[in-house]
């Protein structure tokens, strides 16, 4: 029975690997998931038209991305702080 399960697992793994390889034959097919806002920061936007829909859309996208990053950082800090306070309280209790 366990041999059958192992065979099934091995088969699934090989199929997944084959599918992944066949879909990933050209690295260019893989798109970056996050907008490259660092490059936008390096651009001289003073000469560009702020009312141009393309520029407005880019600025909006990077602003949203920045907000998402800030929120993630805040969440990480909150989790880290709660871990610290848990450790502190358990340390106090043991003393």
């Amino acid at each position: 029975m366990s041999k059958r399960v192992s065979l099934l697992l091995a088969g699934t793994l090989m199929l997944a690997l084959y599918t992944g390889l066949s879909l990933a034959h050209d690295p260019k097919e893989h798109k970056a998931e996050s907008p490259d806002c660092a490059a936008l920061k390096e651009m001289d936007v003073s000469q560009t038209d702020k009312n141009d829909p393309v520029m407005k859309a880019m600025l909006q996208k990077c602003q949203d991305e920045q907000h998402a990053d800030d929120r993630d950082n805040r969440d990480e800090h909150t989790i880290a702080d709660s871990h610290h306070s848990d450790e502190d309280s358990s340390a106090h209790e043991s003393h």
Partner: peptide
């Protein structure tokens, strides 16, 4: 309508899906 005028950078930023 805008695609023929876009640079690679503009395209990358406009087409990337953000985290949300």
């Amino acid at each position: 309508q805008k695609l023929p005028e876009l640079s690679e950078l503009q395209y990358q930023i406009l087409t990337a899906r953000g985290e949300d």
